[in-house]
Design a protein around this nucleic acid. Structure first.
Lengths: 227, 227
DNA sequence: CAAATAGTGTCTATAAGACATTATTGG
DNA sequence: CCAATAATGTCTTATAGACACTATTTG
């Protein structure tokens, strides 16, 4: 035996934007430790069935939320003797982005959305993990197309800009924003589809080009260079 | 028993610049599997003595290279059933940057430097891990002060620029480069110290300000915006 | 003094931001 | 027509890059 057994788990930080506030999806633990607490969806790696930890995270997400293929990326690994009362443990954390409608339009009965700025009482080091995910999201959003994954299948440019602004916490110049989206070249207008109903000019609906479903566009210059 | 035992290891990608070529430090394995092969320095997590995986990586680095506190950062976790013949395994990979002199001026007898573009025959998925580290280094170097950690304690600006150019693979405008270093505000001139000996104006020697030993300066605009 | 490279000044080109204008809807 | 917001044109400002010039050394 090369080592005392180390507890190997995977946790998923599932983020979405409700209104203009980032939320994380939590579920109520149904077994010890911390049974009954709200925590990140996660669990043991199943070495018999999981090909790797990404596969484990996908399985966990599917089991607990019904989601099939959201944007999903490895965040980092959290480890040590102190984070789990059962002993020395490792959690490989992933983060996922989904449009809030997919969670609210309840495929995922057990999930509870919590604003990421008001987390309290999370077990393990789950608060640290969530904060790391939010930091990653904010950072990547400043120079990439990542936030599109928080929008639904069709969305307008003003809506997408509002999503960026909610994540980054600052207004973005409209002209610059549109230039950047154009440069990213990842959106295509849905022919003849507009968002109507309000007393103003209708906004063109866009969708993500197929090639960008799992990849990102990046710019060498960040939004909000000043911050 | 919640799971079949998973093999938990830590591997370190120790990078340095020899001439203008990135090299990775490998050591010859002294036990199975792949005994005798050149591989990344790494090994089992020791849950009795390591506080966490960063601590394990530090221990490994100290044991195999004698290095005490190089720049060290978590790279990511590599996992799965196929990467280790002993079974389902996890490697939490870290990468470290050091001035090449620290390796050549042999504190580290067992280490062999290999150019990162000519890796072959590495066991496990160590080639993937090295390539991921190089990609991380290149990416971060394009907008941060990370490459200073490949220089020794004192260095000139032309030398630092050459380091950036070696990593990024393209020439950088001298004026822009110096403006950026000035903006980073992480260097201080060593009073009265110059690099002399060649038939030209001597170059001012600089050192990293103490506050930046473990942190980075970043710019919202990348070097080489065009690439 | 010639050759070499360090270090700086300055002009040009490019990209971001401010602001104004036009477009199109509902009421 | 008015209010509201989408979409775009255009001017201003900020940053990056090109290039030239000065500075300081060795031989």
């Amino acid at each position: 035996m090369p080592q005392k057994t180390i507890i190997c788990t995977v946790d998923v930080v599932l983020l979405c934007l409700r209104g203009s506030t980032l939320h994380v999806a939590l579920w109520r633990r149904d077994r010890p430790p911390f049974e009954g607490s709200l925590a990140l969806p996660g669990g043991y790696i199943h070495s018999e069935e999981d090909v790797d930890t990404l596969d484990a995270a996908t399985r966990m997400l599917r089991a607990k939320t019904g989601l099939e293929s959201p944007y999903l990326e490895q965040l980092g690994t959290f480890s040590g003797a102190g984070r789990d009362p059962r002993g020395w443990s490792i959690s490989i954390a992933y983060y996922a982005l989904v449009p809030v409608e997919l969670i609210e339009a309840d495929q995922a009965p057990g999930l509870i959305l919590m604003p990421v700025d008001q987390l309290k009482g999370l077990p393990f080091d789950h608060k640290d993990i969530v904060l790391a995910a939010v930091q990653r999201l904010r950072n990547k959003s400043s120079y990439s197309s990542l936030p599109v994954h928080l929008c639904g299948e069709r969305f307008t440019l003003p809506r997408l800009q509002a999503v960026y602004e909610a994540i980054l916490g600052e207004p973005i110049n409209k002209v610059s924003f549109r230039r950047k989206m154009d440069e990213f070249d990842m959106l295509e207008p849905v022919e003849g589809a507009f968002e109507t109903g309000r007393a103003n000019r209708p906004a063109q609906l866009y969708r993500l080009k197929a090639a960008y479903r799992q990849s990102l566009s990046v710019t060498p210059r960040a939004f909000l260079a000043g911050s």
